[in-house]
Computed example of a mutant assay.
Amino acid sequence: MSSLSGKVQTVLGLVEPSKLGRTLTHEHLTMTFDCCYCPPPPCQEAISKEPIVMKNLYWIQKNSYSHKENLQLNQETEAVKEELLYFKANGGGAVVENTTTGISRDVQTLKKLAEETGIHIISGAGFYVDATHSSETRAMSVEQLTDVLMNEILHGADGTSIKCGVIGEIGCSWPLTESERKVLQATAHTQAQLGCPVIIHPGRHPTAPFQIIRILQEAGADISKTVMSHLDRTILDKKELLEFAQLGCYLEYDLFGTELLHYQLGPDIDMPDDNKRIKRNPIQYR
Rank of each mutant, 00 (worst) to 15 (best):
Q217K: 12
Q217L: 04
Q217T: 08
E218F: 08
A219V: 13
A219D: 12
A219E: 13
A219R: 13
G220K: 14
G220H: 13
G220R: 13
A221L: 12
D222W: 00
S224N: 12
S224P: 02
S224Q: 11
S224I: 04
K225N: 11
K225M: 10
K225L: 11
K225G: 03
V227C: 12
V227A: 13
M228N: 02
M228G: 06
M228W: 08
S229H: 08
S229E: 05
H230T: 09
H230R: 10
H230V: 08
L231K: 06
L231Q: 12
D232N: 02
R233V: 09
R233Y: 02
R233M: 03
T234R: 07
T234D: 04
T234A: 06
I235G: 01
I235M: 01
I235L: 03
I235C: 05
L236A: 09
L236H: 13
L236R: 14
D237K: 04
K238C: 05
K238V: 00
K239Q: 08
K239I: 02
E240H: 02
L241K: 08
E243W: 05
E243R: 10
E243Y: 01
F244M: 02
F244L: 00
A245I: 07
A245C: 05
A245G: 07
Q246I: 04
Q246D: 12
L247N: 09
G248R: 04
G248A: 10
C249F: 02
C249A: 15
C249M: 10
C249W: 05
C249E: 01
Y250S: 14
Y250M: 14
Y250K: 11
Y250N: 14
L251M: 15
L251D: 00
E252N: 14
Y253Q: 00
Y253V: 04
Y253D: 00
Y253N: 05
D254L: 07
D254C: 09
D254N: 14
D254I: 05
L255V: 09
F256N: 06
F256Q: 05
F256A: 11
G257R: 08
G257L: 11
G257W: 08
T258G: 06
T258L: 15
T258P: 01
E259G: 02
E259W: 00
E259S: 01
L260I: 05
L260R: 12
L260N: 07
L260D: 09
L261V: 08
L261I: 01
L261A: 14
H262K: 15
Y263R: 08
Y263W: 11
Q264K: 14
L265P: 04
L265A: 04
L265W: 05
G266L: 00
P267S: 12
P267L: 13
D268P: 05
D268Y: 13
D268K: 14
D268I: 06
I269D: 05
D270M: 07
D270T: 10
D270V: 12
M271T: 04
P272V: 01
P272C: 06
P272W: 06
P272D: 06
D273N: 15
D274V: 03
D274T: 00
N275G: 15
K276S: 07
K276W: 08
K276N: 02
K276G: 03
